[in-house]
Design a binder for these strands. Structure first.
Lengths: 236, 236
DNA sequence: CGATTGGTTGAGCCCATTCAACGAATGTGG
DNA sequence: CCACATTCGTTGAATGGGCTCAACCAATCG
């Protein structure tokens, strides 16, 4: 697919308000748009970037689903996040000009690329863009600290419940069903993200199924009792 | 103490290169300096800000030691970080214009304040400052993801070893001893940060003591075998 | 078709937790 | 100044939640 003919990619994008252009005026979006590189396809299983790669660009997920993971020297890996449409990949690399994690597509995906040098120039031209970007970075910090809370002080059931509720919310914000989830990642990915083993994830999904909180068929999960899940997270 | 008479606080600050002015020219530092508010004292046990407070300013730790922690609705708390001289407090609040954690001084401390509105204006004037600030935010993301790795895939001994080595590095970067640590936080704080119970922290410190990795006397910790600790973290 | 990857479930084990007792240090008020 | 309370830290014994090891099944793919 070649979108280079289109004048404004972001302008017509359905998830514009969830992405970098959020909160910008039409004119500002147009200016941003002119500096976006072509949309780029990443096939399922392929890496958008790998640990150690030189940092050149930020990527906004256009369609599809990614995971990011960091590798420990001894081979252990930790999944640090899952990214869907509108979310930004590469923020961690600004720090050192090198990517410190791998970003892998969990289904056939497409991303919008913008070189960070260019983006910083735009930030100088549009204080609004810069302001929003500061918020984007801060939001990622808040998200990470939420994961720290989850990993540091929740039990396995609470972790999985929080994970599912969070996924559901993000799907819902994208006008997709907030109760019919298709998990694009393996049980092992989920486990790594939540600090659990894949067997534990599987067991708890089965338990939730038995408790009529979920309907689980492989990677298809339907949330039957949202409130029940919320109760697990908050109350204890 | 009133520093308002001084023309340049940052300019003469010994930890300038570890703080917001890092990488700025002398002129740029001077400009930044003119917009810094007075230094502000926070006594041991006092809060610099609390969850829910409106976000107005960023704070750079000048002297002393802070902890930040988020509160879960059911009362559980998670310590999300410890901040020492040169490190920035309040980055998480940019996202929502509200502080999402408490920042508490663990010893008598002082901070330098700058209103964020002012700071963003300065960022528009000095692309270099903005560039550095982007890196600061990204560095916090990297740090948080490091903690995620720690919480998600390390065992208790590895966590504590990583924590101590990290503290030692940061003290060393501030020209303080990298082996004689004075822990300003309680065992409970450490445990919360590392996802462990205080008893576990205490036990492991004792174990490290027995293994001649550390000398532990209450909150005074001397690292006897840095390499031994590193081995714990990397190898498994 | 066999090979591979992903998922479920069981049995037993172990690391960290829980519960508990005790000691040291600090602060407070009479 | 001492008596007392409080906070912080250490250590022991027993428990249990999640892990390890293992078997098995289903789906996918070359």
């Amino acid at each position: 697919m070649d979108f280079s003919e289109l004048k404004s990619v972001c302008g017509g994008c359905t998830i514009r308000e969830l992405c970098l252009p959020a909160g910008l005026s039409d004119e500002e979006v147009l200016l941003l748009d002119q500096h976006m590189a072509h949309r780029q396809v990443v096939k399922k299983g392929e890496s958008l970037y790998r640990t150690g790669d030189a940092f050149r660009s930020l990527f906004a997920v256009s369609t599809g689903f990614f995971k990011t993971s960091i590798l420990h020297e001894d081979g252990r890996a930790q999944v640090t996040g899952f990214q869907m449409a509108g979310e930004i990949l590469g923020l961690d690399a600004i720090s050192t000009d090198q990517h410190i994690c791998d970003a892998v597509a969990l289904e056939d995906s497409a991303v919008c690329e913008i070189t960070f040098d260019r983006f910083e120039e735009l930030g100088q031209l549009m204080s609004n863009l810069q302001h929003r970007f500061n918020k984007t970075l801060s939001r990622e910090i808040v998200r990470d600290q939420g994961v720290m809370l989850l990993l540091g002080s929740m039990r396995s059931e609470e972790r999985l419940a929080a994970f599912l509720v969070n996924l559901a919310k993000r799907f819902a914000a994208r006008k997709q069903s907030g109760s019919e989830l298709v998990l694009r990642m393996t049980r092992e990915d989920i486990g790594s993200y939540l600090g659990l083993k894949l067997e534990t994830v599987s067991r708890i999904l089965s338990r939730f199924h038995d408790q009529h909180l979920l309907e689980v068929k492989g990677r298809n999960v339907r949330i039957l009792d949202q409130q029940g899940l919320n109760k697990l997270i908050e109350g204890s």
